[in-house]
Design a protein around this nucleic acid. Structure first.
Lengths: 187, 187
DNA sequence: TAAAGCATGTAAGAGGTTACATGATTGG
DNA sequence: CCAATCATGTAACCTCTTACATGCTTTA
C-alpha cells in the first residue's frame, strides 16, 4: 500500500516526505505515520525505486527513477490476494491514468469478477442462514448481510459504468484525456 | 479486531482454536492465520479474559471468563479512532445483541455522526477540485470521489433504518429478540 | 491407503504504530 | 515572541503473515 501510494504520487512530480504525508492524507485512504513513512522512503531508495536529494536546508526531495516507474506499473497490475482488496483497488484507481486503456479494462474486469463471486457467496450464505432448521440470526447480523449484498451490487454497477466509459473511449482513439504514456524524462 | 472477534464468538459458547478460525472466516471480515490466532489466544488467556482446558486429546477449548465478558463490553462500546473504522464497526454490529438498546443507539448515532462528517468533507473536497482555477482530476479520481459520496449516503440511510428499528423496539419493551442480558453463568 | 481435513504450535521477518528527539520557519 | 506548523528522523513495541513442524482422524 505504502509503496504503491508513494510511487504513484511521485510519478507526477518530486515531493519531499512531509508533503508526501499530506498528499497521502488527501487521497483519503489512510494517514500514514512518520515512523512508517520515513523508514519506508529509505527502503524504497535502498531498493532503487526512488532517489533523494537535499534541497537547500534539511529538506529532502524524493523523485521516481525509471526502475521505480516500472515497479509502479507492476504494483498497479499485479494480481493480489489481500484482505485489503477494496482499499487496494481504489488506490489503484487513483493512479489508473498511468495505465493504458486495455490494461485498465483488464483490471476492472478482474475486480468485477471478484465482486460477482463475492455477491454469489453472500447470497448463498444468506439463504443458508435464513433457511428452515436454522435459528435465524439476529436483526443486526441480517442487516449486515443485506448491506453487504446491496453495496456489492452497487459496486458492480459502478464498475460496469467505468468499463463502458473506458470501452467507448477506446472506440474514439482521438481522446488523450487519461493515458499519459511515456515517461517524465522523455519530454 | 482479533480480541473483539474472539471474545464475541466465545460469548455464546466455548470453542477451540481451529473452530474459532472457521467462525472468524464465516463472519466474513477477514481470515486470521494460525500464526496470529494461537499466539493471540495465549495472550488473551495471559490477560485473564479467557480460560483453556484440554478436552480429551490435544484439543484445547477456550471459554470466556467474567473479566473477559466485561472486556468484550468495553471493546464493543469504546470510542476508537482507527483507520479500520468501517470493518471495526461492522464487527461490532455482529455482536450488538450483547448490548442493551440504549447503548446500541448511542453507538449507531456516533457512527452516523462520523459518516455525516465524512460526507461533508468529501463533498467539500469534490467542490474544491472541480472549481475553476484547478485542472480537473482525471475520470477515475472523479469516479472514486463520487462513489465515496454515494456509498456514504447509502450507509447513513442504512443507519437511519437501524436506529428507527431500534427506537421502535424500545417503544415496545416486551420484545426480547435481541438483548441477551445477564451472563452465561447466571443460568 | 492415501488424501483431505482436523488440530496446535513456533520462528523469522515485514510493516505498522506511538512516543521521543530535534530544530527551523512562519504568522498572529 | 510565542505558538503552530514545517521537517526529518530513531527506538521500542506490537501484531500480523508465511513457512515450517508435527501428528491424528475421517472419507473416498
Amino acid at each position: 500500500m505504502l509503496d504503491l501510494a508513494v510511487l504513484g504520487l511521485l510519478r507526477d512530480a518530486p515531493l519531499h516526505g512531509y508533503e508526501l504525508k499530506q498528499r497521502l492524507a488527501d487521497l483519503g485512504f489512510w494517514r500514514v505515520s512518520f515512523g512508517s513513512l520515513y523508514p519506508g522512503l529509505k527502503r524504497l531508495e535502498r531498493q532503487g525505486f526512488i532517489e533523494s536529494l537535499r534541497d537547500g536546508g534539511r529538506k529532502k526531495t524524493y523523485q521516481l527513477v525509471p526502475k521505480g516507474q516500472s515497479h509502479l506499473e507492476f504494483l498497479l497490475t499485479e494480481e493480489t490476494d489481500t484482505v485489503e482488496e477494496e482499499r487496494h483497488f481504489h488506490l489503484r484507481l487513483a493512479f489508473f491514468r498511468y495505465l493504458d486503456g486495455a490494461t485498465r479494462i483488464k483490471s476492472l474486469d478482474r475486480r468485477r469478477n471478484e465482486l460477482v463471486q463475492r455477491l454469489a457467496d453472500s447470497r448463498r450464505s444468506m439463504r443458508k442462514v435464513n433457511g428452515r432448521g436454522q435459528q435465524r440470526p439476529d436483526r443486526y447480523t441480517r442487516a449486515l448481510m443485506e448491506r453487504g449484498v446491496r453495496s456489492t451490487e452497487a459496486d458492480i454497477a459502478w464498475l460496469d459504468q467505468l468499463i463502458a466509459a473506458e470501452r467507448s473511449e477506446q472506440a474514439r482513439p482521438s481522446s488523450t484525456e487519461l493515458f499519459q504514456g511515456g515517461s517524465q524524462w522523455a519530454k
